[in-house]
Nucleic acid binder design. Structure first.
Lengths: 157, 157
DNA sequence: TCTTGACTTAAAGTTAACTTTAACTTGTAA
DNA sequence: TTACAAGTTAAAGTTAACTTTAAGTCAAGA
């Protein structure tokens, strides 16, 4: 059994956030001692692990609350819960793809500004043809600078 | 040259969002025609691409605004801009790592609920020893269920 | 007995990034 | 000349997920 302060330190979440999660129904079956103090246990810690993961996967608090309710309803909600995790798996995979796209752009910009810094000016690198870039950088450029319209030429900023 | 409606369709952002970005100083040098209508160009499109990428990397609007100001100050801000991209690269790499951790947990849960669905109950899979899980699933489990305290046994929910 | 630290509550406040509203202008087509 | 579509503004509203505040309880140590 743990107090709210102990759990706060273990999972690295502020105490008011834990109370907020409890009030919102994300933590089921939190016991209280005779004077009303919350007694958390290892099941709470596992719940918090799952809550963090579902939040990362893009779920809102109220959706996580629903999931927790399903958990408490037992075996009759297994199919629902499985489908939910499949949806969140797809969601997070899409999010990772988008972040990797953004990362490619950022890596290109790191190279770009490194070149500009060596020159002391953006002049040369700004009008460089992709074919004159190192192969790896050219790949990053082409991956991230697909034109919005076929006729337009992608410009750097 | 494009109108706000054309840009909205091209980059798939609502018109008020483009106006908001303009008002916040994220889009520099937006020209207007004689009756005050914004005239966007290919440089705007490239700015919007960079804005999306910086937002994905965790930057706030006001920080992006600062970056755009640096861009307009020219070569004297190259070092600053490079350092900013290096910071954002680290930030996004960390974020991808965290999302991959969450994904591992979700993949484990997909397997878990698939087993439970086959059994019609969580009973068996809930108390399964990691050593009796398929190797791949055991890896996911151990990667995502490190105990908060060494003495505690990780429980599923 | 008094102070301290850790807990409790309900309710109000915060923040970022939009989003909506209401009122207006302008250029073209019927 | 009237209607419509697409643009304009300033200002108010929305939303989620906390976070802070104010007031109180309770057990242990000096």
């Amino acid at each position: 059994m743990y107090t709210i302060g102990e759990v706060s330190k273990m999972v690295n979440l502020p105490i008011p956030t834990l109370r907020y999660y409890d009030n919102e129904g994300l933590l089921t079956n939190i016991e209280r001692d005779s004077s009303g103090i919350r007694k958390f246990n290892d099941k709470t810690l596992e719940s918090l692990r799952v809550i963090e993961c579902l939040k990362k996967s893009g779920m809102q608090i109220k959706e996580i609350k629903e999931f927790m309710k399903w958990c408490s309803l037992g075996d009759q909600t297994i199919a629902k819960r499985k489908e939910m995790f499949i949806r969140q798996k797809e969601h997070i995979e899409q999010e990772i793809k988008e972040l990797e796209m953004a990362l490619a752009m950022i890596k290109f910009k790191c190279w770009y500004y490194d070149e500009a810094l060596k020159d002391g000016t953006e002049k040369r690198v700004k009008k460089l043809d992709p074919n004159d870039m190192p192969e790896e950088i050219k790949q990053l450029f082409e991956h991230t600078h697909q034109p919005y319209r076929k006729e337009s030429i992608t410009k750097l900023i």
